[in-house]
Computed example of a mutant assay.
Amino acid sequence: MRSPLTDELNKITTLSRLRRYQYFMKEVAINKEVWTLYKGHWAINYASGYQLFPLWPNESFALACAIQNWQQFKPIKFSLDILLTDVIEMLDKHLLFPCIFDTPFEQGSVINTQLLKDDLLNVP
């Protein structure tokens, strides 16, 4: 797995939501894995009455967001195959929306599970 250097991490986290979403798709297609945070339960965010399940393309980005309420959470990795089957099924069952690539300063892109699946299966 490629891990961004600190300078690259800082540069990428300042990109717009759309650019971070595109970066996420590219990196997940290359590395075949995604990251989230866990501590006996999943890290969940809330926005506009929705429960959001954060996903990152790399452990370094997940660690960068393990702050404040998520300070004790640890990064956990899913293979792309597990994401596309078990994780998406869990998200649908619990009415959680994927939140792609939060940063410590800005919420990521909130999408539905079908769009996540379609985009991941159709990365150029």
Rank of each mutant, 00 (worst) to 15 (best):
K32W: 03
G40A: 09
A47P: 02
G49P: 01
Y46N: 12
E27F: 04
A43G: 13
K39Q: 05
W42G: 00
T36L: 09
L55Y: 04
F53G: 02
I30Q: 14
A43I: 11
Y50T: 07
L52K: 02
T36F: 09
W42E: 01
N31L: 11
G49Q: 05
H41W: 06
Q51P: 00
F53S: 02
N45E: 11
Y50P: 00
P54F: 10
H41Q: 12
L52M: 04
K32V: 00
S48F: 14
A47G: 10
W35R: 02
H41S: 11
A43S: 12
G49L: 05
W56I: 09
L52F: 03
Y38D: 05
W56G: 07
L37I: 03
S48A: 15
V28A: 03
W35F: 12
K39G: 00
W56Y: 14
Y38N: 03
L37G: 02
I44N: 04
I30Y: 14
K32P: 02
V28Q: 04
K39W: 03
A29T: 04
A43Q: 10
Y46I: 13
Y38C: 01
W35S: 02
L37S: 06
E27G: 06
Y50M: 10
I30G: 04
L37W: 01
G49E: 04
G40N: 12
I44G: 04
N31T: 13
N31M: 12
I44V: 14
W35C: 01
L55E: 03
E33K: 11
G49M: 06
S48N: 15
P54K: 07
N45G: 08
L37R: 01
W56L: 08
A47Y: 15
W42I: 01
N45H: 10
I30K: 15
Y38A: 00
N31W: 10
Y50K: 14
H41D: 10
I44Q: 00
K32Q: 14
